[in-house]
Design a protein around this nucleic acid. Structure first.
Lengths: 214, 214
DNA sequence: AGTTTCTGATTGACAGACCAGTCAGAATCT
DNA sequence: AGATTCTGACTGGTCTGTCAATCAGAAACT
């Protein structure tokens, strides 16, 4: 047994944050595949390769685990579009294009994460969980989108209510996400982005074309 | 006690279909308020004012009850837009306007039903339940919407892919529904319809204005 | 009309399964 | 040694589905 190659003994004892993240990722997968209602701690533990009791050691209750998982997804999402904005050019059109495109980046737009989001949307409405964990980030997103639309309407000489335009763009992104989760008509993330661009082009034809920013 | 007004003693023994519909309506309410995961047969029975065993008598299993409830909602939705189409004028623009407006009629667009729909969307993705019960109706809806958009693009001299336009309009309706279910930013069904009209106006400016059909 | 029979709806209690959370103790690290 | 992480078994509670008994009304019969 005394192989000289230690084959990286996977540290049985992981650091607190590493373990928690591992459990949260396992939770995302289980929720995505089984749905919220049928997710059990045993499933999560098995997926993470640890014992059931350990899940309760790191997260006091099942509700706490699910709440933290939702917060984790929400924060991941916020950071994704925030860094996309930071990397984009300064004009309203460039910023808006970056924000729309961010929703379909591979890190965010995976079948697993989409399905998990959908499960949380469906279940959270009854409890204040969703607002607690995502309300603030969602407000940030909406505010930013409305601000960019308002800037673009003004600078681009467009007409229409920026609030309504921002809302259409936002729910188009959301709705296309839902479409991607339903198995029957599986269009690609590229087609999804194309759909969002069709909407942007309808409102801002001088700045957006069928393939994105002009 | 012998009041001459019999106050219609609620027939203890109801006809099969009446009872089933009553249980399904109770299920919608319970799912809407408690969410899919926390819905129990006991809750449904209590809401319907009957015993727990009777629910299992009429619907063999809990899954069957939820599946039939989803089918009931789907069929109700389909009939709503189908009769709206039948009542509307024959031109593509009139038909399209009727279809968009149908989503926000009081019979369909209630907080309870919206919340129930959202719960089913979130939970059904993992199982083929949703496709079984709604796939066909959803396909009918999408096909009709795409056909109307194609007609309107052709006859109105517009540009753009009717498939993408129909998709944007469809997910806008869906997304606005989701917005109406989240408690924090409660805009009215009227504002919701206004949002959809903003989208229609962006694609078909010669036929749609801020308040609907021109 | 009154009685009996039949059918199918309805109830309440029960059994089996499952699950979240607890805990005592083992393993591991500092 | 002391602290922290981790395991696996156990518990208390809840939920689903089943079943025997009950009951209301319809149908058939006298």
């Amino acid at each position: 047994m005394s192989h000289l190659a230690p084959t990286i003994p996977p540290p049985r004892k992981l650091s607190r944050e590493t373990r928690r993240t591992q459990v949260i990722e396992a939770t995302i997968e289980v929720v995505a595949t089984q749905g919220y209602a049928r997710t059990t701690l045993t499933d999560v533990a098995r997926k993470a390769g640890i014992s059931h009791g350990l899940v309760n050691f790191h997260f006091k209750t099942k509700d706490a685990l699910l709440a933290e998982t939702l917060g984790y997804l929400s924060e991941e999402y916020r950071q994704n579009w925030a860094s996309a904005l930071a990397a984009a050019g300064p004009s309203p059109a460039e910023q808006l294009a970056a924000m729309l495109r961010a929703d379909f980046e591979p890190a965010i737009c995976t079948p697993t994460r989409l399905a998990a989001w959908l499960s949380f949307w469906g279940e959270a409405q009854s409890r204040p969980l969703y607002q607690d964990r995502c309300g603030e980030n969602e407000q940030l997103y909406t505010n930013k989108l409305e601000q960019l639309c308002a800037d673009l309407v003004r600078q681009g000489g467009y007409h229409g209510d920026p609030i309504l335009i921002a809302r259409v763009l936002r729910v188009t992104c959301e709705g296309v996400w839902v479409d991607l989760s339903s198995i029957i008509n599986p269009y690609t993330p590229a087609e999804a982005l194309q759909t969002v661009h069709a909407a942007a082009m309808a409102f801002f034809p001088k700045h957006f074309g069928a393939t994105g920013l002009l």
